[in-house]
Nucleic acid binder design. Structure first.
Lengths: 204, 204
DNA sequence: CATGTAAGTAAGTAATTACTTACTTACATT
DNA sequence: AATGTAAGTAAGTAATTACTTACTTACATG
């Protein structure tokens, strides 16, 4: 992969993420990448095509959720609740630490908007989301098999889990940390509800 | 309220929702409202100001969640799980039936994007979200007091609940119904997890 | 040295867009 | 009949934007 091309792709990711597809200008992207605007067109033909290439370029990088799961592949005797708590905090940590991730998250967010109008975009988005949900529901299936988790639809459980993290990280992005309190405490509370439910014991 | 003004506000809501703020043109909005473009500027001065007025105009209408809760104010002896199941299905039904709601949801979605750049927008969005979360967590507080729900942070419970519905309705909007199965079944499964948790009884 | 390649510079085109100005039409109130 | 008001028509302005063309510079390779 060309260095100049890569720099343009990275810049495009950033600018698309912060301005949206319509709001992003090729001039801004070129500026961000430190190339002449014309170079951008020579390499990528059109703005539309650039978006497509950014998507392809980041397809593997987006699957960060998959990496997080490799942590658990070996450890077998750990408590499920503890494991999820660790997973949740790792996700939160990844979101906090890496500024790159914030850009990616916002880029994804932009894809939601753009996906409503452009089928190729929604397709790319769909396969990315599946990439997050699939390993998680496979993990849940395993836990059910191991008798650590009660029999529920594993995909529904995965969606519930992912919903929370997507939604709250979105809110944190828009409102800063003012909307919630401390990250880890909030996650503790979610995991508590997710694992034990909200009902009183005798009501079940 | 002026009839023409209202027609412009309604049209603006629709166009902002489907095109985003940047993508929406004043020409399109005027067309949708069946007025001359110049009328739009006479009444609302600028595109920015129009967005602001749309926000103000819809502030009360957005609080649909509040209405849904009035259903429960009187019934006291119903099972909490059943109640939540009904609430969930009502939300889903409202989303399915009313086409207006789809526009509002998409408008809200656009606000997330726009809110990152414009503080007035994120402010309006914040107060709207509070409007959804507040009655729900008050409801949970009541249930805890009545001994039907175990002691958890009611706000965290509300956010978990809302996360699921916001996220899945977003996905349905972008991907159609292909991403999930039947609406009601999916909700049943979520409520099951939300109320009972995912752990096996002996693991708690 | 000669040639090819990747990049920049500069200027420009055609379309779009938010917004303005000047004037007209239709209707309602005094 | 006279006046005010809310709307339309038409034309235009200044800026922006995606994208193009023509030419130049720098560098690497044969």
């Amino acid at each position: 992969m060309d260095d100049t091309e890569q720099r343009i792709l990275d810049a495009a990711l950033r600018v698309f993420a912060s301005e949206g597809f319509t709001g992003a200008t090729t001039r801004r992207i070129a500026e961000e990448a430190n190339v002449a605007e014309v170079t951008l067109f020579r390499k990528f033909k059109s703005k539309k095509n650039l978006l497509k290439e950014v998507l392809i370029n980041n397809r593997t990088v987006f699957s960060s959720m998959e990496d997080l799961f490799q942590l658990f592949q070996n450890e077998k005797d750990v408590n499920l609740e503890t494991e999820l708590r660790i997973l949740g905090k790792n996700i939160a940590k990844a979101m906090r630490d890496k500024k790159k991730d914030s850009k990616r998250r916002m880029f994804m967010f932009m894809l939601f908007e753009e996906g409503r109008r452009r089928p190729e975009v929604s397709e790319a988005l769909s396969s990315f989301l599946q990439m997050n949900i699939k390993p998680l529901s496979e993990y849940f299936d395993l836990q059910i098999k191991n008798g650590k988790m009660r029999t529920t639809n594993s995909r529904s459980a995965a969606i519930t889990f992912v919903s929370y993290f997507v939604y709250t990280s979105l809110l944190r992005e828009v409102f800063g940390d003012s909307f919630f309190g401390e990250h880890d405490e909030e996650i503790e509370r979610f995991i508590d509800i997710f694992t034990k439910g909200i009902l009183k014991a005798e009501e079940k």
